[in-house]
């Protein structure tokens, strides 16, 4: 199996577990920084998936009937689509993770850029 893929699965697992234990999405969001070496688009996709999957994982343990009843009530009160309501939090966490990944990737690009400029100066 691809080494990078295994590495990604490990990061995902750590992210999901940390979310399940702490209830905060900080670790998935921070860990998404680690995708900085990939191409920016790929790192963003990986970041999003990390945040989204980590934060949607707890739903697997819940009773579907009860989830639908709760979402039905809240969606009718606030007027938001029921599915969107259930996915709202994972989507937000996914977005935050995606942005962290993008941040890592961007900083990496800037550093590379700076290093290449430094070496060009040294050559002169």
């Amino acid at each position: 199996m691809n080494k990078n893929f295994i590495l990604y699965l490990i990061i995902l697992l750590i992210s999901a577990l940390s979310f399940l234990i702490t209830g905060t999405a900080l670790i998935p969001i921070i860990l998404s920084l680690s995708f900085f070496r990939s191409k920016r688009l790929i790192s963003m996709v990986l970041g999003f998936l990390t945040g989204f999957i980590s934060s949607i994982a707890p739903l697997l343990a819940y009773n579907l009937y009860a989830v639908i009843k709760i979402s039905g009530l809240i969606s009718s009160v606030i007027g938001l689509n029921q599915i969107l309501l259930i996915l709202a939090f994972p989507l937000i966490v996914g977005m935050a993770s995606m942005l962290t990944a993008a941040l890592g990737s961007q900083i990496y690009l800037i550093l590379i850029d700076l290093r290449s400029k430094d070496s060009a100066l040294g050559d002169s």
Binding site: L20, S55, P58, L59, I86, F89
Partner: peptide, 11 residues
């Protein structure tokens, strides 16, 4: 929040 928000009541 799927871990400690309203969904957690659906356990």
């Amino acid at each position: 929040n799927t871990q400690n928000g309203v969904w957690s009541y659906a356990i």
